[in-house]
Design a protein around this nucleic acid. Sequence first.
DNA 1: TATTATACTTACATAAAGTAAGTAATTTAT
DNA 2: ATAAATTACTTACTTTATGTAAGTATAATA
Lengths: 107, 107
Amino acid sequence: MAERLCPRFEDAFELLGKRWTGMIIKVLLSGPKRFKDISDVIPNMSDRMLSERFKELETAGIIIRHVYPETPVRIEYELTDKGKDLEGSMNEVQKWAEKWCLDIPNS
Amino acid sequence: MAERLCPRFEDAFELLGKRWTGMIIKVLLSGPKRFKDISDVIPNMSDRMLSERFKELETAGIIIRHVYPETPVRIEYELTDKGKDLEGSMNEVQKWAEKWCLDIPNS
DNA sequence: TATTATACTTACATAAAGTAAGTAATTTAT
DNA sequence: ATAAATTACTTACTTTATGTAAGTATAATA
């Protein structure tokens, strides 16, 4: 019998292997963001999905939700240390994407 | 209006953001493998999914399918240069996973 | 007073993934 | 010779995930 794939790697891709997750993390690497900030940058993702991903990422300890009781209330999402530590991975994917994924310029 | 997320990065995560894709690539980084070799190493993935992912990865130019007309026929899947170039990303994810994803030992 | 903005939720439709079984070619075991 | 096993899939059906559209609550602005 063959060895199994590393279960920690599996866990990592249980998260990153969901649509939008990588993109959300990428955007948050440039600092805390509000809900709208992220949906503006990833416009083909629905609010419903962003909301769901935020919850998953919070549960996974990758982001924290900050509520600033101003008027009107301001809510920001920030990467935890665990989340920030994904910067290396995201940078590698970015480098790979720049090398291999063609940019199709829009009209 | 905010800038959009880099479309190449989006393309990259259109692939990596699908279940099993990252794991399949990880396994193939150690050399060409047969269908069964991969399903053994990732046992909770169904054959149906492996078959589908192989097709997507071939279309994306990340793997090549080799048919060796022996008897019985042997089929192997190998990473292309584009695929092998994901090693850096996968290694970063592996390092992150080892640091942050707890290993839950099974009984 | 009506409209806009933010940060969501809800209901419903469609697409993706899971489950189980089946297939075809060949090999090994009885 | 016949039955069981192996590899690399496919097919049919079910469940889960995601997409789409609309709605809600609070407050600001016109």
